[in-house]
Design a protein around this nucleic acid. Structure first.
Lengths: 345, 345
DNA sequence: GTTAGCACTCAAACGAACCGAGTGCTAAAG
DNA sequence: CTTTAGCACTCGGTTCGTTTGAGTGCTAAC
C-alpha cells in the first residue's frame, strides 16, 4: 500500500523520533544518510502519510510523530530483524546467563534487573507456573499444638509451603500416616490435576481409609490451595519510567506506577495464549491507562510448553528492534536454563 | 529554651504546613483558633524562631517553613501523643489484624499495603529474620541426576529451600543417611549459631563418620548459606511519593524511587540497634539522597526480641503524630500476631 | 509588651514581542 | 508527471517588562 519511498521515510521518522523524542521535520529528515530527496519532497510524502493515518502532528507548525498505526506498520513490515544488538548488550546478557545462578527462582527474580537496565524500561517477569510440574513429595513438619507446616515439592524442584492448623491432640504417628497416604496417592500427579476432579475423588477415599480423616482433609485442602497459587510477579526498573520525557508529567507517571503495584493487574498485561514475541501498542493494550505505552512480551518454556512470561513496558516511543531482540534472546536463554536444571523426568 | 508562646506558634506552623504544604504566614496563623495574638506579634516571634534555627524562609517575602531542627524539636517536645488516630484508621487497622491471615510471610507482605494506604506514604517492612529461631527439620528431596532440593524448616514454621548439586551417582540411601545425621546434629540449634563455630566443628565430624562426606558437606554448606539469607524487603505505595508536592520535581522522585529498588539500600534505612519508635529527619538519615525525607521506624518482636522492622518513608513534611501512632499500633499488633502463631517451644 | 500602619520585597501570573522550526502552496525546473 | 526552490504563514517557546498580592520588617502609638 505504501511506496518504497514512503516506507523509507516512515522508518526514518520513527527511528529519529525514538532517538530524539521530538517531532521530526522535513529538513532534519533530509539530512539522513539514506534519504536523498529535498525537504519539499519529503513534506509531500509526509502529508500523504499523515492523511493515511501513519503520522500525526501536534500542531500545524510542528514536525510529525508516528501514530499508533505508524508504529504497528513499522513493527509488522519494516522491521526486518536487522543485525543483533550491540556488542556490550550481548556481552551483558551472555554474562548473566552463564554466571553461576543455580536456582530458577533466583534467576527469574534477577533477570528483571538485567532486562530493565539494558532496555532502560520497566521489565516484568511472571515466575514459572507449576502448572505442568508433577508432585514430587509432600511433607508435614509439626510445630506445636496441632500447628503444622505442609510442604509441597515438585519434580522441577519448586517448593511451596503453608501453615495448617490441625486438631491440637494430633500425634506424630497420625501425621506420618497422613503423609504416607498423600504421597502414595499424589506423587507423580501433575499440579494441574490436583484441584479439579482428583480432589473430590481423593477426599472420598480418604474419608474411608484414614483414621484422622478430618485432619487429612485439611492437609489435602491446603496442599491443593497452595499448588494453585498464582505465579509470582517480578518488576524491575519501574523508576526508569520517570526518565522518559513522556512521563515528565507526574500525573501520568503516577497512574502507571500505581498500576504496577497491583500484581493482579500486571499479570493481566500478558496475553493468555500464543507464544513468541507479541507487541501491544497503545490502545491495543487491555488496560486503558496504557494508551501511550507499548508492552512487548514473550514466554519461556519447559518441555516445549510455555511456563512463564517476560515483558518490557515503556512508552510507545521505544526502540522496538532492540527490545524485541533482547527479549528473544532472553526468552531462549531462560528456556535453555530451565531445561538444563530441570532435566526430563 | 522556648517560651510557651513560641512553642505554641511553632506547633501551629508545623501543623499548618503539614496540612497545606505551603509556607505559612503571620496572618494565616492569627486565624488559628488557639492563637490570640495579632499578626505583628506573631511576626516578631517568628523572626526569633528563625534566628534560633527552628524556621526558615524560602525568600524574604514568603511565609516560614519548619527547618529540620524545628521538626526535631516538635517531635521531641511538642508531640504529647494526643489522642489516638481517627476512627476510620483504627477501624481499618483492627480489621486487618483480626482478619484470617494465617501465615507470617503473608501478613508481613500485606501489611505494607495497609500502612501505605493509611499514611499515603511509602511503607517498608523487613521480614522477620530467622536469626533467633531454631532448626526444626532438614529435608532432602532428590530430583534427578544428583540434583537435590534441600529444605530447612525452623520452629517458627519458616521454610527456606535451595537446590544442591551432588554426585550424579548418589543413592537414595546415601541421602537418607545424610539427612539423618544432619537432623541429629542440628535440630534445636539456633539459626544464629549455624554458620559460625558450629559449621567448622560439624564438618570435621562429618568427614569422619559419614560415608559420602563430600556430598554431606555440600548439603551442610548450602543449608548454612540459606539460613543466613538476608531478610526479605517489602515495599508498598512507593507511587504515593509522586502525589507529594515536594516530589513534583521528577528528578528528585526518580532518585528516591531508584533507591527504593535496591533492597540492600532500603534495609540500611533501619537502625541496627535500639527498638521502639525512631524518627530520622532529613540529614539524620544515613543516606544522602534522603535530605528532604523522614523515615520513621519501629520493630516487631518475637519472644521479647526484635525480629523485624517496619517503617514509613516520606517527605520531612509529614503528619508525625498520626504516623507514629499508626506505626506503634502496627508494631504491637504484629508482635502479638507473631506470638499467637508461634507459641513458645 | 502588644498592635496598627506603612513601606518594601519578591515569586508568580500575565501579556506583548520576538524567534525560529516547520508547514503548505505555487511555480519553475528536470 | 515528478522534483525542487521560494515564500508566506502558523504557532509553540522564550524573553522581558509589568502587575499583583501575600508576606515581611520597622516604627510609632496604645
Amino acid at each position: 500500500m505504501l511506496t518504497p519511498r514512503q516506507e523509507l521515510i516512515l522508518s526514518a521518522i520513527i527511528e529519529d523520533y525514538v532517538r530524539m523524542a521530538e517531532p521530526v521535520g522535513s529538513r532534519a529528515l533530509a539530512k539522513h544518510d539514506d534519504i536523498q530527496f529535498s525537504p519539499a519532497t519529503i513534506r509531500n510524502e509526509m502529508a500523504d502519510l499523515e492523511e493515511m493515518g501513519y503520522l500525526t502532528q501536534l500542531h500545524t507548525s510542528s514536525g510529525r510523530i508516528p501514530s499508533q498505526k505508524g508504529y504497528r506498520f513499522y513493527v509488522d513490515n519494516l522491521l526486518q530483524q536487522q543485525g543483533g544488538f550491540d556488542r556490550a548488550t550481548g556481552e551483558r546478557l551472555r554474562e548473566f546467563f552463564t554466571s553461576r545462578i543455580d536456582e530458577v527462582e533466583k534467576a527469574v527474580r534477577e533477570v528483571t534487573t538485567v532486562l530493565s537496565s539494558l532496555t532502560r524500561q520497566t521489565a516484568i517477569v511472571l515466575g514459572p507456573k507449576m502448572y505442568t510440574e508433577k508432585v514430587r513429595k509432600i511433607e508435614l513438619v509439626p510445630l506445636a499444638r496441632g500447628r503444622v507446616v505442609a510442604i509441597l515439592v515438585t519434580d522441577a524442584g519448586h517448593v511451596e509451603n503453608c501453615a495448617v492448623q490441625l486438631s491440637e491432640d494430633i500425634r506424630v504417628e497420625d501425621l506420618e500416616s497422613i503423609v504416607h497416604v498423600l504421597n502414595d496417592k499424589l506423587v507423580g500427579v501433575p499440579i494441574s490435576r490436583l484441584r479439579s476432579n482428583l480432589y473430590s475423588k481423593l477426599s472420598e477415599e480418604l474419608a474411608q481409609t484414614v483414621e484422622r480423616f478430618e485432619d487429612a482433609l485439611a492437609v489435602l485442602n491446603e496442599v491443593c490451595q497452595v499448588s494453585q497459587r498464582e505465579e509470582p510477579v517480578y518488576i524491575g526498573g519501574a523508576s526508569n519510567m520517570l526518565s522518559q520525557p513522556e512521563f515528565h508529567d507526574v500525573e501520568k507517571a503516577q497512574t502507571i506506577l500505581t498500576l504496577l503495584e497491583q500484581g493482579q493487574t500486571v499479570a493481566s498485561l500478558f496475553p493468555t495464549e500464543g507464544l513468541g514475541l507479541q507487541v501491544r501498542i497503545g490502545a491495543e493494550n487491555p488496560i486503558g491507562a496504557l494508551q501511550d505505552c507499548t508492552v512487548i512480551t514473550t514466554t519461556y518454556s519447559l518441555h516445549g510448553r510455555p511456563v512463564g512470561h517476560i515483558g518490557v513496558l515503556g512508552p510507545t516511543r521505544m526502540d522496538y528492534n532492540r527490545i524485541m531482540q533482547i527479549l528473544n534472546y532472553t526468552s531462549e536463554s531462560m528456556t535453555q536454563m530451565m531445561s538444563r536444571w530441570i532435566e526430563g523426568h
